[in-house]
Design a protein around this nucleic acid. Structure first.
Lengths: 256, 256
DNA sequence: CGTCTTTTTGAATACTGTCAATTTAAGTGG
DNA sequence: CCACTTAAATTGACAGTATTCAAAAAGACG
């Protein structure tokens, strides 16, 4: 068994049917993701404060966009289940993935800057999110320093995360990029209670390439190289990390 | 001595002397940078609220670090004068510049994530900053939604800025990277009342390279190429943009 | 069972990096 | 003031990595 939903489950029923928007109430205090998600680090009382905000849950079908570049910003979104890709559209129409998001991770913070989303979020499999009204969040955190700090810390973490990605894009070769990517996924899977050594990637080679700044052919070749070196076992999107230590050592290499 | 330092100023007196820290009071409401800086977009009343925070001005000599990776986070810094480089240290000891900061720009927001700075800020020339105690800022914004939003927006802008850089690093070739960099500097110079077409770069070729994910030789070659194509006039760090439109068109090129 | 998408692999090209030498500017010290 | 050192920038020749173009294989889908 692995990761999130689908793929494992009855593959055929990716109904393209009715859209998303269902307004089920959702409470942070009883959510099993609370230690990973927005409430992370908050005391019980403060988490209850979050409950006062009217969240709604929203279902997003595989391939559908949760929001697009330019959409008015009024919500931030926490992933409940499924996986998302955040991406920017380049001048020539291609797009670049700025990140992949798993359960408990928060998306959409870039929208605050100019009041409209600067990136696009697409579900890579059937997914569900909490839509958190930003205005409500602001209001709730106005009188609560801990909550306000939690939101700020969330944004700061996003900045730090992007630092890491800039480092990857600016200074690593193809093997290092892929190794860093896999180790990052591995760690996040583990934090969610899944196996750190065996998992199913939710994104295509092209998505990975657009995220890591390389072509899909290069991604594929690098997977093959890792397999040949005995670091991985790769079967399409199924990955088994055979030698995690060696994979980590790829990052220490003299570089470029 | 090393790297940066002096160069601009009386070279020999890079006194290792008494450090920076001078505590001159500084007020946002009377600052000539207020439309570029933290108070940007705030109404007069709200700006006065900022005055209540005890800022201190701090001088930083060329080549000195304002803060380093791992330093405890307690201030964010607004540049009053001079130019800074933010950078991350790579495993092999080299460093990658995550940004350059000019008057009115705010640095250090990455420190909030884990309570210590994730990057290092170095002055590229003698400089002066406002050191804004984060705790004080938080307190001042607790009762003031507009101020709180201004801080959040600042962080969100940083996220968006880094998006742009990721796009650059992930999808542009050397000419596009340098063109994007120069146009960005040009625009920021203009916003500060300087010429948009003629300016002096504060950073070395190596710094530019580490920022754009290319080697210093490639930076130099690309400058030469632009000069030969009639887009620029380059004399070491003095740049004159001869054909801004053509420089912008470099970015539209089919890509890689 | 045929179509379409995704992935893999090969061969050739192109771009950027590496190594090395030179130039220029500025600082150092006799 | 001039030779000496050092750092930054430029340029050339060559090497290497990743891209491009192309084709084939493997599933997924209807």
């Amino acid at each position: 068994m692995q990761a999130a939903a689908q793929a494992t489950v009855t593959p055929l029923q990716y109904v393209r049917s009715a859209a998303s928007a269902v307004t089920l109430p959702a409470l942070c205090s009883t959510c099993h993701l609370k230690d990973l998600c927005l409430p992370c680090g908050l005391a019980g009382v403060d988490v209850e404060r979050l409950d006062s905000i009217m969240f709604s849950r929203r279902r997003v079908k595989a391939g559908q966009a949760l929001y697009r570049e330019g959409d008015a910003f009024s919500f931030i979104y926490a992933v409940r289940s499924g996986t998302f890709k955040s991406s920017l559209t380049l001048k020539d129409g291609r797009d670049q993935a700025t990140g992949f998001h798993m359960a408990g991770e928060v998306m959409g913070l870039d929208g605050l800057a100019h009041g409209s989303h600067a990136s696009c979020a697409t579900a890579l499999e059937d997914a569900e999110v909490c839509a958190i009204p930003y205005a409500g969040l602001n209001q709730a955190s106005a009188g609560n320093a801990a909550l306000q700090e939690a939101v700020s810390r969330l944004m700061s973490r996003e900045i730090v995360r992007e630092h890491g990605l800039m480092m990857l894009l600016g200074s690593m070769n193809a093997e290092q990029r892929l190794a860093a990517f896999l180790l990052n996924i591995s760690q996040r899977m583990k934090a969610r209670g899944y196996s750190a050594t065996e998992f199913h990637l939710r994104m295509s080679r092209a998505d990975i390439g657009s995220h890591l700044g390389m072509k899909l052919e290069t991604v594929s070749r690098t997977f093959s190289a890792f397999q040949q070196q005995g670091l991985l076992e790769v079967d399409k999107r199924h990955i088994r990390i055979v030698d995690a230590a060696a994979l980590a050592r790829v990052l220490d290499a003299p570089a470029h």
